[in-house]
């Protein structure tokens, strides 16, 4: 068990320190996220739509596309410096590598999302009535589901000739239920009044996270094989 944790910690630390030096993933997530939000504002005039109609879709589209580019960067970095191969000490450690990657990706995503959210708060005039505990719970659950799937497919897509194109092609359909639940849930939270029906979406998100985190944990080792 302690061997497992030490592998996890090593992977996590290595990713964080690489990111600290290069800031590739964060730059990608933040810049692309902000640009998506701005593009959304051009596409859907906020003056003509209610906040709860535009913000959920805008936020999650931004997170999704920015996140996929970010994960692609992260996997490309691993491929360049041969980091993943070096960590493959024994087959038993592969689950631990997944957990480490999952955690570092979650940290990158949440940090990037926080910056994008900050701008969104200002641009769409969100306040304490909107940014409640359920709002952040949906954000967390959605992000964890995204990372659970994305950590596996970031490596898979690197091995395809299409690379960065393959990642969204593989991920977006599989993420469909998560996106639907996250957007609907966020819309319920942002709509003034009761949070009726929110529980069902939260359950769906939690179930999604659980299923794909377990699947990723079990299958990640196979995609690392050369």
């Amino acid at each position: 068990m302690s061997a497992f944790l030490s592998v996890t910690r090593a992977v996590f630390r290595r990713d964080l320190s690489a990111e600290w030096r290069q800031k590739d993933v964060l730059t990608t997530v933040i810049m692309f996220g902000l640009l998506t939000v701005v593009t959304f504002v051009f596409a859907f005039d906020p003056a003509r739509h209610a906040r709860e109609e535009i913000v959920p879709g805008c936020l999650w589209t931004a997170y999704l596309f920015a996140g996929m580019l970010g994960l692609g960067r992260s996997a490309a970095r691993d491929g360049q410096d041969g980091g993943t191969v070096g960590l493959l000490l024994s087959p038993a450690d592969r689950g631990a590598v997944y957990v480490g990657k999952f955690l570092s990706h979650a940290v990158f995503m949440l940090a990037g999302e926080a910056v994008v959210l900050l701008f969104t708060i200002v641009w769409f005039d969100l306040d304490g009535r909107h940014l409640t505990a359920p709002f952040f719970l949906i954000l967390l659950l959605g992000t964890l589901g995204f990372v659970a799937v994305g950590t596996v497919f970031a490596v898979v897509s690197q091995k395809s000739r299409l690379r960065e194109v393959m990642l969204p092609v593989l991920m977006l359909p599989i993420l469909a239920p998560m996106v639907m639940a996250a957007v609907e849930g966020t819309a319920i939270v942002l709509t003034p009044g009761s949070n009726e029906g929110l529980g069902e979406w939260l359950k769906l998100l939690a179930g999604f996270d659980l299923v794909f985190a377990v699947a990723g944990f079990l299958l990640y080792g196979f995609v690392l094989e050369e």
């Binding site: 239920p177 609907e184 794909f212 990723g216």
Partner: peptide, 19 residues
């Protein structure tokens, strides 16, 4: 791996049906 993970998504999509 893709075939297995993709298939896992199916029942989850159908759960959205109840909501």
């Amino acid at each position: 791996v893709t075939g297995i993970i993709g298939w896992l998504g199916v029942p989850i999509v159908y759960l959205g049906n109840r909501v």
